[in-house]
Amino acid sequence: TQVHVDGVTYTFSNPEEAKKFADEMAKRKGGTWEIKDGHIHVE
């Protein structure tokens, strides 16, 4: 599962880990995350 944050791609083999990471990054940025085309995007 790929997580895209500010133009950087992080790859996780476990989708649950990817979601936890996205959640943390979104909180830090004061933003949100969503799943697009099977990838997670942090806004």
Score class of each variant (00 low, 15 high):
residue 1 T to S: 06
residue 1 T to Y: 11
residue 1 T to Q: 06
residue 1 T to F: 11
residue 1 T to A: 06
residue 1 T to I: 13
residue 1 T to W: 13
residue 2 Q to R: 11
residue 2 Q to E: 10
residue 2 Q to H: 13
residue 2 Q to P: 07
residue 2 Q to Y: 14
residue 2 Q to C: 13
residue 2 Q to D: 09
residue 2 Q to V: 12
residue 3 V to H: 00
residue 3 V to C: 03
residue 3 V to Q: 00
residue 3 V to W: 01
residue 3 V to P: 00
residue 3 V to K: 00
residue 3 V to N: 00
residue 3 V to F: 02
residue 3 V to A: 01
residue 4 H to I: 09
residue 4 H to E: 05
residue 4 H to F: 11
residue 4 H to M: 07
residue 4 H to L: 07
residue 4 H to D: 05
residue 4 H to T: 08
residue 4 H to G: 01
residue 5 V to P: 00
residue 5 V to E: 02
residue 5 V to G: 03
residue 5 V to K: 01
residue 5 V to F: 08
residue 5 V to L: 08
residue 6 D to G: 08
residue 6 D to K: 05
residue 6 D to A: 07
residue 6 D to Y: 07
residue 6 D to T: 04
residue 6 D to N: 07
residue 7 G to L: 05
residue 7 G to M: 05
residue 7 G to C: 15
residue 7 G to V: 02
residue 7 G to S: 07
residue 7 G to P: 01
residue 8 V to H: 11
residue 8 V to N: 10
residue 8 V to M: 13
residue 9 T to P: 04
residue 9 T to F: 11
residue 9 T to E: 06
residue 9 T to D: 04
residue 10 Y to P: 00
residue 10 Y to D: 00
residue 10 Y to H: 06
residue 11 T to M: 11
residue 11 T to I: 12
residue 11 T to D: 06
residue 11 T to A: 08
residue 11 T to C: 14
residue 11 T to W: 14
residue 11 T to S: 11
residue 12 F to D: 00
residue 12 F to V: 00
residue 12 F to I: 01
residue 12 F to E: 00
residue 12 F to Y: 04
residue 12 F to T: 00
residue 13 S to E: 11
residue 13 S to A: 12
residue 13 S to D: 11
residue 13 S to V: 10
residue 13 S to H: 09
residue 13 S to L: 11
residue 14 N to P: 00
residue 14 N to K: 08
residue 14 N to G: 08
residue 14 N to T: 11
residue 15 P to G: 08
residue 15 P to R: 09
residue 15 P to S: 11
residue 16 E to F: 10
residue 16 E to L: 09
residue 17 E to P: 02
residue 17 E to F: 07
residue 17 E to G: 05
residue 17 E to K: 08
residue 17 E to M: 10
residue 17 E to D: 13
residue 17 E to T: 10
residue 17 E to I: 08
residue 18 A to C: 06
residue 18 A to G: 05
residue 18 A to R: 00
residue 18 A to Y: 01
residue 18 A to L: 01
residue 18 A to T: 01
residue 18 A to P: 00
residue 18 A to M: 01
residue 19 K to N: 05
residue 19 K to F: 15
residue 19 K to A: 11
residue 19 K to L: 14
residue 19 K to P: 00
residue 19 K to Q: 10
residue 20 K to Q: 12
residue 20 K to H: 10
residue 20 K to Y: 09
residue 20 K to P: 01
residue 20 K to T: 11
residue 20 K to R: 12
residue 20 K to G: 08
residue 21 F to N: 00
residue 21 F to V: 02
residue 21 F to K: 01
residue 22 A to N: 01
residue 22 A to V: 02
residue 22 A to H: 01
residue 22 A to R: 01
residue 22 A to Y: 02
residue 22 A to W: 01
residue 22 A to P: 00
residue 22 A to I: 01
residue 23 D to E: 13
residue 23 D to S: 11
residue 23 D to Q: 12
residue 23 D to W: 07
residue 23 D to F: 07
residue 24 E to V: 09
residue 24 E to M: 11
residue 24 E to I: 10
residue 24 E to S: 06
residue 24 E to A: 10
residue 24 E to R: 09
residue 24 E to C: 15
residue 24 E to Q: 08
residue 24 E to G: 05
residue 25 M to E: 14
residue 25 M to L: 08
residue 25 M to K: 04
residue 25 M to A: 09
residue 25 M to T: 09
residue 25 M to S: 06
residue 25 M to H: 06
residue 25 M to Y: 09
residue 26 A to Y: 03
residue 26 A to I: 14
residue 26 A to M: 04
residue 26 A to R: 03
residue 26 A to N: 03
residue 26 A to W: 03
residue 26 A to C: 13
residue 26 A to L: 06
residue 26 A to V: 14
residue 26 A to Q: 03
residue 26 A to T: 08
residue 26 A to F: 03
residue 26 A to D: 02
residue 27 K to A: 13
residue 27 K to V: 11
residue 27 K to P: 03
residue 27 K to M: 12
residue 27 K to C: 14
residue 27 K to F: 13
residue 27 K to I: 12
residue 27 K to L: 13
residue 28 R to S: 14
residue 28 R to G: 11
residue 28 R to V: 14
residue 28 R to I: 15
residue 28 R to F: 14
residue 28 R to A: 14
residue 28 R to T: 14
residue 28 R to N: 14
residue 29 K to E: 10
residue 29 K to V: 15
residue 29 K to I: 15
residue 29 K to A: 13
residue 29 K to R: 11
residue 29 K to D: 10
residue 29 K to N: 14
residue 30 G to H: 06
residue 30 G to N: 09
residue 30 G to W: 02
residue 30 G to S: 04
residue 30 G to I: 02
residue 30 G to R: 05
residue 30 G to C: 14
residue 31 G to E: 03
residue 31 G to V: 06
residue 31 G to M: 07
residue 31 G to P: 02
residue 32 T to C: 14
residue 32 T to G: 07
residue 32 T to H: 13
residue 32 T to K: 12
residue 32 T to E: 06
residue 33 W to S: 04
residue 33 W to R: 02
residue 33 W to D: 03
residue 33 W to A: 05
residue 33 W to P: 04
residue 33 W to Q: 04
residue 33 W to H: 03
residue 33 W to F: 05
residue 33 W to I: 11
residue 33 W to K: 03
residue 34 E to A: 09
residue 34 E to Q: 12
residue 34 E to N: 09
residue 34 E to P: 03
residue 35 I to P: 03
residue 35 I to S: 06
residue 35 I to K: 04
residue 35 I to D: 06
residue 35 I to G: 04
residue 35 I to V: 10
residue 35 I to A: 05
residue 36 K to V: 13
residue 36 K to R: 13
residue 36 K to D: 05
residue 36 K to P: 04
residue 37 D to R: 01
residue 37 D to S: 05
residue 37 D to L: 04
residue 37 D to V: 03
residue 37 D to H: 05
residue 37 D to M: 05
residue 37 D to N: 09
residue 37 D to K: 02
residue 37 D to Y: 05
residue 38 G to V: 03
residue 38 G to T: 04
residue 38 G to P: 02
residue 38 G to H: 04
residue 38 G to Y: 03
residue 38 G to L: 04
residue 39 H to L: 09
residue 39 H to V: 15
residue 39 H to Q: 12
residue 40 I to C: 04
residue 40 I to N: 01
residue 40 I to M: 04
residue 40 I to F: 12
residue 40 I to P: 02
residue 40 I to R: 00
residue 40 I to L: 06
residue 40 I to S: 01
residue 41 H to V: 13
residue 41 H to T: 10
residue 41 H to S: 07
residue 41 H to R: 07
residue 41 H to P: 02
residue 41 H to M: 10
residue 42 V to H: 03
residue 42 V to G: 02
residue 42 V to M: 06
residue 42 V to S: 02
residue 43 E to N: 14
residue 43 E to S: 14
residue 43 E to R: 14
residue 43 E to Y: 15
residue 43 E to D: 10
residue 43 E to T: 15
residue 43 E to Q: 14
